[in-house]
């Protein structure tokens, strides 16, 4: 367990301490936020190396932002989610994505396929299905169902209304269902 995993000082207090030159506060913040940045980036981008670059850049921006942080303006985690999302969006725009419409149509097959997939396969399949979603839907689903943020928090991160978040999550989940259902044959679970 990391040496500072039990540090329960608020994020804002640690940021203020770092801004005053407290190196120990930087260690706690790094342990607290680098995993978040990496998780979101990797799920958004589907690429470990790129995700590391994004996480590193996001943390660098956190250090630089620290002296000017306005207490009470926003939560540090919300700010970081937004920075990571924006960095990922910039990278995604440079890629060519297969639109969701091009994903294979759901195929007929035996029910209960999810129960027969081992966990690693499920995680990998979900990652692939996420990558086929439009960027905003993917971001909303990741923040809601993998990071556990509430809809109002996601709305703040994505700078949209709560209703828009609900719509993005719902459409994203429908897209995931369609993509994962359509992969049953490919994954060898059609006849079970």
């Amino acid at each position: 367990m990391p040496f500072d995993a039990k540090d329960d000082r608020p994020d804002e207090a640690l940021l203020a301490l770092y801004a005053k030159g407290d190196r120990g506060a930087a260690h706690v913040l790094a342990q607290r936020f680098t995993p978040i940045a990496l998780r979101v980036a990797q799920r958004m981008l589907g690429d470990a190396a790129e995700a590391e670059d994004v996480a590193q850049e996001a943390m660098l921006r956190l250090w630089r932002m620290a002296p000017g942080w306005q207490p009470g303006a926003a939560r540090v985690s919300t700010w970081l989610y937004r920075v990571v999302a924006n960095l990922c969006t910039d990278r995604l725009r440079k890629r060519r994505w297969v639109p969701l419409d091009a994903a294979p149509e759901p195929e007929d097959g035996a029910p209960g396929v999810a129960e027969r997939m081992i966990e690693a396969d499920r995680a990998a399949a979900l990652e692939q299905a996420l990558s086929a979603l439009p960027d905003r839907q993917r971001q909303a689903v990741i923040l809601r169902h993998l990071e556990g943020l509430s809809n109002p928090e996601i709305a703040e991160v994505m700078e949209v209304g709560v209703e828009a978040v609900e719509s993005l999550v719902a459409r994203g989940k429908r897209g995931l269902v369609a993509a994962l259902s359509g992969r049953r044959a490919e994954l060898g679970y059609e006849h079970g």
Binding site: P35, L38, R39, Q42, E52, R122, A125, L126, H145, L146
Partner: peptide
């Protein structure tokens, strides 16, 4: 699927 992905989250 979500639970599986959460359990296999990447670590820095």
């Amino acid at each position: 699927f979500f639970a599986a992905a959460r359990d296999r989250a990447p670590e820095p």
